[in-house]
Amino acid sequence: MSNTRLLTFRQALWFSAELLFWVPVTLLSLLLVYNTLPYFSFNPQFEFIQERIKLFVNPVWKVSFYIHIAAGVFCITTALTQFSSYILRKRKAIHVYAGKMYVFVVLVLGAPTGFYMAFFAKGGYWEKACFLFMAIFWFMTTYKGLTTIRNKNVLAHSIWMIRSYSMALTAVTFRVYHLLFYYSGMDHLDNYAISLWISVLGNMLVAELIIFRKTKHYITSLNPLL
């Protein structure tokens, strides 16, 4: 009886934790998508574009920019459905089609354009290097996620896709940190650099923690001494 109660309590706790994670992530992702939509008026009068007006005259950068933000909108929205165990069990077709769309968008559109734009990213050379790393890591993890599921390795697929999503989600977490540091009165460029590094490293750390928790039982089953 007490065991059942403990189990129920643990389940409730886990469910609350998931809710605390997914509700803000979903809302902030949708807010990001909503804020991105005005850019498709192709009007260069936005502050973000005006700041990069010297890059905007370069047609390759301009096309890359619009493809990248369109890819971002697709990635963020399709990825939201991918981690739902309900959809995975009951509506597997949604998972498959949304997954294929995510992979296509990342590998063909999002990562290559992001890779090009990373060379001209805001900040110093370290920030440029960070963006380059993000583009390569995003591409590589998504690529591995696709190849592992083609080999029917579901666990490896889920691990690589968690890593891939953690990179996609840096767009959201970066803005959260940026806003927080802005209200704390930090200098603009320092704020930009710190928010970037924290969002990338923080997301990677959270992803690895989730992966560790997810694979703990599997690793223990392989090596009972652990």
Binding site: V108, P112, F115, Y116, M117, F119, F139, L146
Partner: peptide, 23 residues
């Protein structure tokens, strides 16, 4: 699927090279 993977690798390489040259 293999074609898409190859295209994506080529795209990545091309964009990386273009970015490096412009940089």
């Amino acid at each position: 699927m293999n074609t898409m993977l190859n295209i994506s690798l080529l795209l990545m390489a091309a964009m990386g090279t273009a970015g490096a040259i412009d940089f």
